[in-house]
Structures are given as structure tokens and as C-alpha cells.
Nucleic acid binder design. Structure first.
Ligand SMILES: [Zn+2]
Length: 690
DNA sequence: GCAAGGTC
């Protein structure tokens, strides 16, 4: 889509290396280039096509990795498995060939270095990335750590002057994180696949892990609750009024118990032909600009506005970053530090005609200060446009770019000014109360730039207390409220992970995609759906591996890592502890799946057909209603519907068939299945209405 | 082949 802004490559650059230099290892190529500039290492050399930098004297070399070059791997099959080693990732992971050149370059540059500096991001993973390279290719006894949190010249030079000893405890904590995740993930995934194979004779890829499994269980729980939802109808009386040629609506306050009662009120108001104003209040209010984007907020907005999935948005943003159009996107920060030079960044946007007006407007202000959010990131600021606009953006890339620029400009803009009008009305007999509300935008402020979250204007004519207003029409509408639990959607899952603190900016969207790739969740017509496999795996995890079913495991791991980092605990102990728990779990699990229960468990997990299946789905039958076999979920749905039906009949006052088909269309899926079935299954119909 | 974590 876009060309990389990396400049010309002259393959034959002669960069003779004199032994005894200092090798600075950055986490990624962009960081290496910034560090090189700050440290005056301006000679750009190439190892094949991969760049590195040296000082004029040749005693300083800056080169980069591309994230983790080493990972944990085993050649052993079967489970439980507790032996693993650090191996170059490109050797065992499909699609990781791009790591090879970085690996080879660092391998060569490491040979004749005197001192190694780990200049990867100053966080737990950065410590592991740099350490593993130095440990495998160089010598950790001759290593230092460079600590910085922004890639500005001043901070990088300061960090260079104040090199620290290697952060051994942080490295140990990081390695422990890798080991514990590997032990849980590989072992429990293999355990699931083992059951599947025993039950079906076929090999399927299944997986479980510290982050993906709680997310699956969360989706499962929401889906179950939603499936059993029956709305309580609201009988709304809506009065259409007119004054001075302006039409507006007022709604009855309170909920009539029955449809008949609501119709009676509607009829009366229509007959009266007037409502009286009891109360009017104008409430001016301000809306502050939103904070600048971090990745979760960008993913949420792109999903809301363009229906892009979180991983699609992330990919588009990463492309824009590699093309130098935006800053680093895998950030959690909602803050723009003033060291970025606000004015300079906005000035660069002037050259783009689409943003010229807004940018010029901001530059005319004496003070520029962005709205800052609360979320922080140890290594990166919020996402902002660099001012360099690559040509030939695809429409999808452009949409994300436009969103980022507008959001960035909006954060510097003025508050929006709005007025909300609230009015209470009554019928002429004073029996009922109605409310009308309106919204007027007085000054759009930032909403003029970031146009995606303006409230809709709803004008209300000037109203005076005591006056009578003409009724044009009255309607009665039955509202069936949506369930409180949200439908399954990728963006909701990513947001939930962020809220409970599992996964990272770089991994959440990818891990959610994994749940779909495994066939646990599928994309549906109106909303995504749990498959019987996904529901089964979730139930199995809850019963056999409860540690993996909630975010608590992450909380405990974080505490353990912190204790390693502060020297209160050792990696060995933390890993042994995890190993012990896993050994015990797998011991019971193996007994279970080798027992007579195995077939039943496999059927419950959606891995093989049950002895007797539910009349409405493929799950095992749990109960019979008038001879109709139902699974646990459909049985619960039946019981709930049977309990609710009398009151719905009384309140809605529809013939039973019409009521059932209405319920089928507004309720959760298990309730719908039962209601729809009852319409043509006499045995179920009779049982339900008995 | 399985995790979760980096990044091209
Ligand atoms: Zn069923």
C-alpha cells in the first residue's frame, strides 16, 4: 500500500568493524534510528538489507532487534511437558522469517563487541528481548541497561550518560512470565486436544491460556445470560405536539401496567386535544474534548464508526506507523507530553488542505494545551500524526489516518457548548405527567473537527409555564428493552480484557481473533455466536481448569513477578509453583478422560454427539418436558418462559400465538428457540400453557 | 500444534 520511508539502500556500504566497540541493541528499527541520531552515530550501514548505525570513530554501533528474537520451545510431544528452551523464533514459528536478518546481523555484530547495552523499551519484555540477545550472542557480564521512556534527543542523551547495570531482577521476572505462560498454555491446550482426539478419533487444534481462556469464559457467560433473557415490555404513550409550527414529542412518565391502560390514556389525551406546560428548565452544559487516542480507544472508535474489527484497525495503524505517518500505535497512553512540540506538529498539518482551516485556527491561539486522559504507558505517548502524509493511502488506511488527525486536533480545541431543555407537561385533568426534552448546540467547538460524537440536535419551541399546547397525534408503542448483557463482539471482548487488565495493546485483538480461529465463536448475522465447541470448552475449563477461567491468574502472576523484580522471590520458586498446580490438575484430568465418564465429558464439551440430544440443539438432553428432550440451557429457558408467560399474557393482552411469536423475536436465543418451537409443537405448547 | 509477548 505504501512505500517505506527508509531511504535508499546502498548494499555495498563499507563499514569495516574494528573490534572493541560498544553495541547498543534497540527493540525495533525506528528506535535504533532515533538513538543513533541522538548519540551522533550518523553512519548508516547495512547488513544485507538491514540497517545499523555507527559513529565516525567506529567505537559505537547501534543495531536493532524486531521484538523477541528468542522464544520458548520444546521438541517433546505429549503432556504434561516441562522441558523447554530458548530458541530463535524464526527456526520454529511459521511466518517469522522476517526475524532472520535481524538475528544474523546481531549475531555478527555481537562477536567483536567489548560492551553490550540493552536499549530496548524500558519494560519487562524489553528487558527480556535485549537480555536474551546478549546472553545468547554476547556476554551478559559485559552488559549495561539504558533507561528512557521517550525517544527524544535530550532524554536519550541523558540515558546514555547514566547507563545502569543490567536489570537482572526485571529480566528474571520477564523470563518467569514466559515460562509460566508457556506451561499453562502448552499443557492445557494439549490436554484439550487429547480429549478431542480420544472422543472423535480426529485431530483438531484447540487451545487454552492465561489470557484467551478467561475471555472465552466471559463470552460464554454473557451469551448464556443473554440467551435466557425475556424483556419486560414498556407501554409508551407518545404525544406529538405542535407550537409555532414546530413539532415535538412528549412521553408519558411512568409505566402503565397493561397495554389496555396505556391505550386508554392515549385515547383520553387525544380526545382532550391539549397538554399543559407545568415546568420548563434550560440547562446549559459543556462537553470537553476527548483525550488523544491510545490503541484501545482507536479500536473502539473504528469499530463504532466503520465497523472495523480491532485487529483490522491495528493492522492499518501499524502500516501508517511504518510509513511514518503516525507515532507508535501500540500504546495505552492518553497523554501527549509537551516535549513533542505541539505547535510544530500542528503546523505540519497545515499543508493538508482538509485540515488547514482547523490547524490554522488552533495556531492562532496563544496557548496550546491538549486534553489529557488518565491512561498511561511506560514507553510511549498517545497516538499522534507526524505531519508526514504518505501518498496513495488506501481508503481504509485513510479513514484511520483521518480519525487520528481529527482526534489529535480536537484535543487542542475548545469545549462544545450545548443547551438541554427539559419540560414537564400534564393532561388537562391533571392525572398524568409527560416529559419533553430538546438539545441545542450553541457552539460546536471540538465537535466541528471530530464530528463523530455530536449529539443530534433536537429543537424545542419556546415554552411557557401554564400554557396549553396543541396535540396533533397520540401513539401507543410497546418497547421491548434489550438485555443488559452485551452481544458477543470482538470490540466488546477487547474492551473487557482491557478493563480487567489481561493481555496488552499488542496482543488483545490477536487473542480475540484466536478464539474465532479455533471455532469457539463464529460471526453471526446480527451478532456473533458461541459455538457448541466454544460453550463446551468453556464449561470444561470452568470445571477442570478453574484457574484459567478468570483473570485472577493474571493478578497472581503479576504479584509474583513483582516479588521477583524486588528480590523478595525467585523465578525458580514461581515457576515450580505453577508447575505443581498444573501437575495436579493434569493428574485428575487424565484419570477423568480415561474413565467411563470420558464420552459424557466429550459430549458436554461439544466434541462428540451425545447419547440423546436436545430437541432444539446438539447438546446432551438433560430433562424431558411432555416427552420433548431438552438440554440444560433449553430446559432453563422453558422454565423461565413458563414462569413469565402468565404475567406477559395479562400485560400485553395478545392472543397466545401472537405473544409467543413476539417473544421469540425479542428474547434471547434459548427463549426464542423454545417459544418458536412451541408455536408448532403441541406437546411443548400444552406444557408451557398448562 | 498448543501461550503470550514483542514487531516486520
Ligand atoms: Zn438445547
Amino acid at each position: 500500500m505504501m512505500r517505506r520511508g527508509s531511504g535508499r539502500r546502498s548494499a555495498g556500504d563499507k563499514c569495516g568493524l574494528k573490534p572493541g566497540y560498544t553495541l547498543v541493541i534497540a527493540e525495533k528499527p525506528k528506535a535504533a534510528s532515533r538513538i543513533a541520531m541522538a548519540l551522533n552515530a550518523s553512519r548508516k550501514c547495512y547488513y544485507g538489507r538491514t540497517p545499523y548505525y555507527t559513529s565516525q570513530s567506529g567505537d559505537l554501533i547501534i543495531a536493532s532487534a524486531a521484538g523477541h528474537l528468542y522464544g520458548l520451545h520444546t521438541r517433546e510431544r505429549g503432556y504434561p511437558v516441562f522441558t523447554y528452551e530458548w530458541i530463535p523464533i524464526y527456526e520454529y514459528e511459521k511466518g517469522a522469517y522476517y526475524l532472520k536478518p535481524y538475528y544474523s546481523m546481531l549475531s555478527k555484530l555481537s562477536r567483536n563487541a567489548e560492551l553490550y547495552v540493552n536499549a530496548c523499551d524500558y519494560d519487562i519484555e524489553g528487558s527480556v528481548i535485549g537480555y536474551m540477545i546478549i546472553a545468547k550472542m554476547g556476554d551478559p557480564r559485559r552488559a549495561k541497561r539504558m533507561r528512557y521512556s521517550t525517544l527524544t534527543h535530550a532524554e536519550l542523551r541523558e540515558a546514555w550518560r547514566k547507563l545502569s547495570p543490567i536489570d537482572k531482577e526485571m529480566v528474571e521476572a520477564g523470563i518467569a512470565r514466559h515460562e509460566v505462560d508457556w506451561l499453562w498454555g502448552i499443557n492445557i491446550s494439549r490436554a484439550l486436544m487429547d480429549l478431542a482426539r480420544k472422543a472423535t478419533g480426529r485431530r483438531v487444534i484447540l487451545s487454552a491460556g492465561r489470557v484467551q481462556s478467561p475471555t472465552l469464559v466471559k463470552a460464554y457467560n454473557d451469551w448464556m445470560k443473554r440467551g435466557l433473557y425475556i424483556p419486560d415490555p414498556l407501554f409508551e404513550v407518545i404525544v406529538i405536539l405542535e407550537k409555532d409550527g414546530v413539532e415535538f414529542t412528549a412521553k408519558l412518565i411512568g409505566n402503565p401496567e397493561t397495554r389496555g391502560e396505556a391505550l386508554k390514556i392515549a385515547g383520553q389525551v387525544k380526545h382532550d386535544g391539549k397538554l399543559r406546560i407545568l415546568y420548563v428548565e434550560r440547562k446549559p452544559y459543556e462537553r470537553k474534548p476527548p483525550p488523544p487516542f491510545n490503541l484501545p480507544d482507536l479500536q473502539a472508535e473504528a469499530s463504532r464508526i466503520y465497523r472495523y474489527s480491532p485487529s483490522e484497525t491495528q493492522k492499518l495503524a501499524e502500516d501508517l506507523y511504518l510509513a511514518a505517518a503516525i507515532s507508535y500505535p501500540r500504546t495505552n497512553s492518553q497523554k501527549l507530553p509537551s516535549t513533542l512540540g505541539y505547535r510544530g506538529l500542528i503546523e505540519k498539518l497545515i499543508s493538508m488542505s482538509k485540515y488547514r482551516k482547523f490547524a490554522a485556527n488552533l495556531l492562532s491561539k496563544e496557548k496550546l494545551y491538549p486534553r489529557q486522559g488518565l491512561k498511561e504507558d511506560p514507553a510511549h505517548p498517545a497516538i499522534y500524526p507526524t505531519g508526514y502524509m504518505p501518498r496513495n493511502l488506501t481508503p481504509r488506511h485513510y479513514r484511520i489516518y483521518d480519525l487520528i488527525v481529527r482526534r489529535f486536533l480536537a484535543t487542542f480545541s475548545e469545549n462544545a457548548l450545548l443547551v438541554k431543555t427539559l419540560s414537564t407537561l400534564t393532561d388537562v385533568h391533571g392525572r398524568y405527567r409527560f416529559e419533553a426534552s430538546g438539545i441545542n448546540i450553541v457552539k460546536a467547538g471540538w465537535m466541528e473537527i471530530y464530528t463523530y460524537s455530536s449529539p443530534e440536535e433536537k429543537p424545542l419551541p419556546p415554552l411557557a409555564v401554564g400554557e396549553l399546547v396543541d396535540v396533533k397525534d397520540v401513539k401507543m408503542k410497546i418497547a421491548w428493552p434489550n438485555p443488559a448483557d452485551p452481544p458477543i463482539r470482538k470490540i466488546s471482548l477487547v474492551k473487557w480484557m482491557e478493563k480487567v487488565g489481561i493481555g496488552t495493546e499488542a496482543t488483545r485483538a490477536r487473542i480475540v481473533d484466536t478464539l474465532y480461529k479455533r471455532g469457539y465463536i463464529i460471526r453471526g448475522k446480527s451478532e456473533d455466536e458461541m459455538t457448541s465447541l466454544g460453550a463446551g470448552v468453556a464449561r470444561l475449563l470452568i470445571s477442570a481448569f478453574p484457574q484459567l477461567s478468570t483473570p485472577d491468574l493474571t493478578r497472581r502472576l503479576e504479584e509474583d513477578l513483582e516479588s521477583i523484580r524486588t528480590g523478595r522471590n525467585s523465578r525458580r520458586k514461581v515457576v515450580m509453583e505453577a508447575r505443581k498446580i498444573i501437575v495436579n490438575l493434569l493428574d485428575s484430568y487424565k484419570k477423568l478422560i480415561e474413565s467411563d465418564e470420558a464420552k459424557k465429558i466429550a459430549a458436554e464439551a461439544g466434541l462428540r454427539p451425545p447419547e440423546e440430544k436436545c430437541h432444539l440443539c446438539n447438546m446432551p438432553a438433560k430433562a424431558k418436558i411432555n416427552g420433548v428432550a431438552l438440554c440444560e440451557a433449553h430446559y432453563s429457558a422453558y422454565m423461565k418462559l413458563k414462569e413469565k408467560l402468565p404475567s406477559l399474557k395479562y400485560r400485553v393482552q395478545y392472543p397466545v400465538d401472537r405473544l409467543l411469536s413476539k417473544i421469540a423475536s425479542v428474547s434471547g436465543r434459548f427463549i426464542s428457540d423454545v417459544a418458536r418451537e412451541a408455536l408448532h409443537n403441541k406437546r411443548l405448547y400444552d406444557a408451557l400453557n398448562a
